Simulated assay, not measured.
Amino acid sequence: MCFAAPMFAPHSSHRHSFSHRACRAACSLVSAAITLLSWPAMPLAAESQPVLRAVTSDVNYPYNFVKDGQVRGLSVDVAKELAKRLEMRLEIEILPWTRALHVAKTEQEVLVFTVAKIPEREASYHWIGPVTNSEEWLYKLKSRHELKVESLEDAKRYLVGDEASNASIPSFARLGIKVDLAPSMTSNCRKFKMGRVDLIPFDPDGIAAFVSECGLRWEDVEKTVQIPRDGALYFAFGKASSPDFMRKVRRAFAAMEQDKTLFKLSALWKTNSTKAKRP
Rank of each mutant, 00 (worst) to 15 (best):
M7H: 13
A9D: 06
S12L: 08
S12Y: 11
S13W: 10
R15H: 02
H16F: 02
F18D: 03
A22P: 00
A25C: 07
S28C: 03
L29V: 03
V30T: 04
A32M: 08
A33R: 10
W39L: 11
L44T: 07
Q49M: 13
P50E: 10
L52F: 11
R53Y: 12
N60D: 13
N60A: 15
Y61F: 13
P62L: 14
Y63V: 04
Y63A: 04
N64S: 15
D68E: 15
G69W: 10
V71W: 03
V71T: 15
V71M: 08
V71E: 08
G73W: 09
G73Q: 10
G73P: 06
V76Q: 02
V78A: 09
A79H: 07
L82H: 04
A83S: 13
R85D: 05
L86N: 09
L90F: 05
I92P: 00
E93S: 09
A100S: 12
K105P: 01
T114H: 04
V115T: 06
Y125S: 00
L138C: 02
K140G: 02
S143H: 11
H145G: 05
E146V: 02
E150M: 04
E150G: 09
K156F: 08
P170R: 02
S171K: 09
F172W: 05
A173E: 15
R174G: 09
G176H: 04
K178T: 07
L181N: 02
S184P: 05
S184A: 12
S187K: 06
K191Y: 09
F192R: 00
F192L: 01
G195R: 04
L199W: 01
I200Y: 01
P201G: 01
A209G: 05
A209T: 07
R217H: 13
W218C: 08
D220E: 15
K223R: 09
K223H: 00
V225P: 06
Q226G: 07
I227Y: 04
R229F: 15
G231N: 13
L233M: 15
F235K: 04
F245G: 11
R251F: 13
F253V: 08
A255S: 06
K264G: 03
S266P: 01
S266Q: 09
S266W: 03
L268E: 14
K270G: 03
K275W: 15
K275T: 12
